[in-house]
Amino acid sequence: MSVIEAKSVSKIYNPDTIPVHAINDVSLTIEEGEFTAIVGPSGCGKTTLLNMIGGLDSVSEGHISVSGVNIADLNEAALTDFRLKNIGFVFQSYNLIPVLTAKENVEFVMLLQQSHQSAMDERADELLTKMGIKEVSQRRPAELSGGQQQRVAVARALASKPKFILADEPTANLDSHSTESLLDIMAKMNEEEKATFIFSTHDQRVIDKARRIITLEDGRIVSDEKK
């Protein structure tokens, strides 16, 4: 079952002056449970494509459907709500809320969804345990290492059981040990929670772990391989 369908998607910056085709006629389908890496050199459009799939950026041409919903049809508030319920985000710089503890950060998205406190507690504890950071659950981000912060970010992204998780260069700021560890955890989550992961990366270790590799060049898909 496909969770994402992109058809002839283009992103053109400065269409009225000097048009720049950041994404050029890209079509792809992501199935539930995939562990996909979008790779390519810097400036090839990986982040732009991820942003459009995540509803953070608009498409210039074509359309993107998530679980059958054309996200271009949603207004701003509805799109925010849609992201909240369907998409988990992991950013390169972790981007945790600095004033909340690790556990509160994990609970945050569930809180926005108005989940019950006991359900939030249970889910946050479960995820933090699976991430191996239960013991630091009461610490704030500034008191955590980069690897720990990124694990909290992954836990936050998974907390509300979204349809898929978009991770933009999730290992770019991590050392090799933290990267390995994070990838293992995400692979485990992919297995256990059937969570769909889509990464943008040029980290070979991520590419090695991915089961599908989509390669972009100059805004076009030049290869799409499944292992």
């Binding site: 953070l56 925010t80 709500d81 992201r83 909240l84 985000f89 950013f91 998205v109 926005l112």
Partner: peptide
């Protein structure tokens, strides 16, 4: 930047 992150993970602007 922080407001952008909050909005992207699903916190409505009104909130």
């Amino acid at each position: 930047y922080e407001f952008g992150i909050l909005n992207s993970i699903g916190m409505k602007k009104s909130r």
